[in-house]
Design a protein around this nucleic acid. Structure first.
Lengths: 330, 330
DNA sequence: CACGATTAAGACAACGTTGTCATTCTTATA
DNA sequence: TATAAGAATGACAACGTTGTCTTAATCGTG
């Protein structure tokens, strides 16, 4: 910048003014400065800039996802990027892998780089460590799961309502023995979904049979094994509800292997690519990760723009998409 | 930091030394400093640190992908994150959407934040604008597609070889009329794949019928339409090779709709989730995005560690995975 | 016991910017 | 024509760190 100023024959401050498009610069000097910038191919140093600036903004936000490579997370990520980029804000992304320790260390890395805001899909169950960060002015929004021991903006899927709708869909078609495959119980969304299952059964006066429930499953393989077990008992379920993406795929694999995919109904929570091309198409309770991301990032920027109102808790509805597998009769 | 120094009763510099774990600090002072850091919950400001540091490292890299939400990109992204995080390096991610303008502006944002390195899946066809950046010491690696007008490290998939293997697989099974669906010709990988198709046909003495080729397709819908057209002519192909993920899915949709999915063979370039669960399973020439990402990030860090050897051009092999659709006989 | 070598700590400037305030030059008005 | 008001520019300090150099304290050796 010093060199630019020298070449243009102006002061440092004038160059700064030109770069930040401040009004009080004559057009003649401005063009001379621009020419010098061109000539020297000078690049503005935002780190130094935000260090000196009064608001201290870095024009970067941190996004903590479960895993940047999974479709749910990456859809969220993309929506966030879209809005952020429009405002010239860059996005740091990181994967927690459902590990509380990793969550903390990644967020520490984000904050040590002075991100303006954080969008967090939490893996830990205590976010009080973020209190001081919030006090320091960092905006933060929690997505998909609630913040614990911290009052903050949240954007959640209607997990319980969605699951109830899915279970009701099966009950309407006459199923009375509905198996349930659930993710790690420590994950809040998994717990809520299971609550949806329990409460919808209760609401319709059906007793929950613990023998039809398998929880704490992770990934396709364990779900396939669990589903196969459920189906091999004396009084097997006539329908299965899978509480997550990969569990649905695992259940479908098991059904195919046992050649039951046209006999036993299957409804999954969370849509996935190609669910419509399987045989039969898989009925799902679809989340809307794009809407989650959009809502979260808009909330974040509203805070960054100065909104100081009490915490907002947004809930994004689900949508049941019948494709065949959920319409099989008992 | 000033407050920490005051509370611990030491100088600024000593705090700095403790934070950077420099050796020449007595353990007593160090623990006093640590206590003060705890008490004030002080956060180190890396922006200021890297501003002052002689190497000027920001411990952040920029990753430019086609779209953070697509599986190929996000797998790459994840591999990069894994290696980077181990070294305390954070990752900025951005999506070019195949738009050269967007590529440039994202990279400008990255560099204005003084990233130490760039991993780029290029969308533009002239990277000479990066020359000055490279001269300034930013490491860079190009992935999946070559750099243009710039001599730089590159990691590519063996597009032509992979396609030739896929075509040979079909020819071996007796197909002589093989349709081809290709992505935008401006994308280098798409061009190489089409070359693979042409050259393998030529090598086996089969004349290329332009009526069996549809290029410049984008996305599932246009591929489905193109495939349906190919199949509706007087002498339709007995097999289809789809030069990309979504084109394969589009082709499969079309085959299903015409109830030809057990009659016409299909081989796709690039694997996708659930390809094995479709009916029939889809035979693919699988890329290895994880290996691409790993190789790229390792190359990048080698450069950051000071390797000044000439540019390296790595090629990652493909693997043909037979699942049924590619083994249908004419 | 004196001396040089080693170790631990601090003072100060500098990294590349921008906020604040002072200065100069115009322009409009009485 | 004198003067106030406003516009354009610059000088300088400061943002939160770390590199360099200096000083003070400790140690081992002949």
């Amino acid at each position: 910048m010093r060199e630019v100023a020298a070449l243009a024959g102006v002061s440092l401050k004038t160059v700064s003014r030109v770069i930040n498009a401040e009004p009080a610069v004559s057009s003649e000097l401005a063009s001379r400065v621009h020419a010098a910038i061109e000539r020297l191919d000078y690049r503005h140093n935002r780190a130094a800039s935000s260090l000196r600036r009064s608001d201290g903004r870095s024009a970067a936000i941190g996004v903590l996802l479960e895993d940047v490579a999974n479709p749910f997370s990456s859809t969220l990520h993309r929506e966030i990027e879209n809005v952020a980029l429009q405002r010239g804000v860059l996005v740091f992304a990181g994967s927690s892998d459902e590990d509380a320790e990793r969550e903390r260390s990644l967020i520490a890395e984000f904050t040590s780089r002075r991100v303006d805001g954080l969008i967090i899909v939490p893996a830990s169950h205590d976010h009080s460590y973020l209190l001081s960060e919030r006090r320091a002015g960092t905006a933060m929004v929690f997505v998909d799961r609630p913040a614990a021991y911290l009052d903050a903006d949240t954007v959640l899927t209607d997990n319980q309502g969605g699951t109830r709708a899915g279970i009701a869909h099966l009950l309407d078609r006459g199923h009375r023995r509905i198996g349930y495959l659930g993710d790690l119980e420590t994950i809040a969304t998994a717990a809520w979904r299971f609550q949806g299952y329990s409460s919808e059964l209760a609401a319709q006066g059906i007793e929950l049979d613990p023998g039809l429930v398998r929880l704490d499953l992770r990934g396709i393989e364990s779900a396939a094994t669990a589903a196969a077990e459920l189906l091999s008992v004396a009084a097997p379920p006539t329908a299965i509800f899978a509480g997550q993406n990969l569990l649905t795929i695992g259940a479908y694999r098991a059904l195919r292997k046992l050649d039951l995919h046209h006999r036993v109904a299957l409804v999954g929570f969370d849509d996935f690519l190609l669910a419509d091309l399987l045989e039969p198409g898989i009925t799902v309770v679809a989340q809307d990760p794009a809407a989650l991301g959009r809502t979260a990032v808009e909330l974040l920027f509203r805070r960054l723009d100065g909104d100081r109102s009490p915490s907002i808790h947004a809930v994004i509805p689900t949508r049941l998409i019948p494709r065949g597998s959920g319409e099989i009769q008992p």
